[in-house]
Nucleic acid binder design. Structure first.
Lengths: 214, 214
DNA sequence: TACGGTAGAGAACGATCGTTCTCACCGCAA
DNA sequence: TTGCGGTGAGAACGATCGTTCTCTACCGTA
């Protein structure tokens, strides 16, 4: 067995375990057993569990975004629809358990800066892809930000209640926003201007003082 | 010291620790030290760590939703705006670290059914509150589902990039959807009907076969 | 003043888990 | 054949952590 092959086998074994049960709930011994790679080589390829976790997230990041990008590229006439159709499909998979990166953030985001960086990078890349989709749909960055919220929201909702429905809801909202906002990026918003600080005073005055919530 | 007071002090000590660093990263000894409650009494009040975690989430659930409900009630003329102003305020708090329930789900959702139930209950209650907001804004359940996506999406985005901006983006989208969809719940959606299964064939046919993604 | 029951402080226990070490084994060069 | 570098399997180590136990001190009551 090659080191490169060992690496693949380790990641192939670790990924479904980490995704299904969380990183901390899966021990190195279980990965050893599942992969068939001896511990010695495991620790040569990944000197610490943190390295394996980072590789797991990095590989998943590449594949996930690659698949989504391919789905978008395959539907040049309606990239918006392609995004949410793809999500609907994903949400319906039997082992769907939400966003691996959001889950990793909840588990390790405060403990590991490496994990935090990967998660941030993943979301930034997703935002970039949605930016292209928004542009090709006739919208601008404002639409892209809205698509990002709808996408993240759909994933979060589907995580607790698996099924394609949240993706359909997101698509309807996205289509409505894209239709309403075609070329109307700076006046379709019913209130706040696009200056990030313009409404802050009013915003803060309207609600109570900060305190711990959720 | 009373058992009831011990309980409060334990939760007061545990909550910021759990929220800031995650449940698994905080040991019972640290909670003992931070609360000043002796270990013996700690284990009388909460026989196991899981009980303390459940109480932490339950208390936070009640307070978070109560605060949001109060903010909505305080702005009867524009409940939609109240929601996202409140969120913007929350996102700006210095110790904001995303949704405690989403984080707990990522950490323990697959291990603990009790945690899963609390998280599901929390999100269901939030969806209920947004349902009222949607209704008072002139929308129906379709708008409520969209608000849910925008809200969850804003929280998820803000978790990785703290600041009020995602709440403002969500508000703009919500206001646009509420304006566009007033009384137009069954035809404003640009494509898919409201029947959950009507478009499924097309949806599934458009994308590739399922496989592990993210 | 003696005493039973409870509280507090912290040591101790037992399990888990990441990581390292031991040791027998195998293929290969001299 | 004879060593030898590396491999595989799994035991062992060390740390952490949830939980329990021990021991001393105190308080209300007779």
């Amino acid at each position: 067995m090659d080191d490169a092959e060992a690496r693949d086998r380790l990641l192939d074994a670790a990924e479904p375990l980490f995704y299904a049960r969380g990183v901390q709930a899966v021990g190195m011994d279980e990965i050893r057993t599942a992969s068939g790679v001896p511990l010695k080589r495991l620790y040569r390829v990944f000197p610490a569990k943190a390295d394996l976790v980072a590789a797991y997230l990095a590989r998943r990041d590449g594949r996930w975004l690659g698949d989504l990008r391919a789905a978008v590229a395959a539907a040049p006439d309606d990239p918006l629809r392609a995004v949410y159709d793809w999500l609907a499909d994903w949400f319906g998979e039997p082992d769907f358990r939400g966003c691996a990166f959001a889950n990793a953030f909840g588990e390790l985001g405060h403990t590991s800066d490496a994990v935090l960086d990967i998660v941030r990078g993943h979301k930034r890349a997703l935002r970039g892809l949605l930016g292209e989709v928004a542009e090709r749909t006739g919208g601008g960055p404002a639409l892209a930000d809205q698509l990002m919220l709808l996408t993240e929201g759909a994933i979060a909702v589907a995580a607790l209640d698996p099924g394609p429905e949240p993706a359909r809801t997101a698509y309807r909202a996205a289509a409505a926003l894209a239709g309403a906002g075609a070329g109307a990026d700076m006046e379709a918003d019913t209130g706040l201007g696009s200056d990030p600080d313009a409404g802050e005073g009013a915003v803060r005055a309207r609600v109570r003082a900060p305190g711990p919530r959720a």
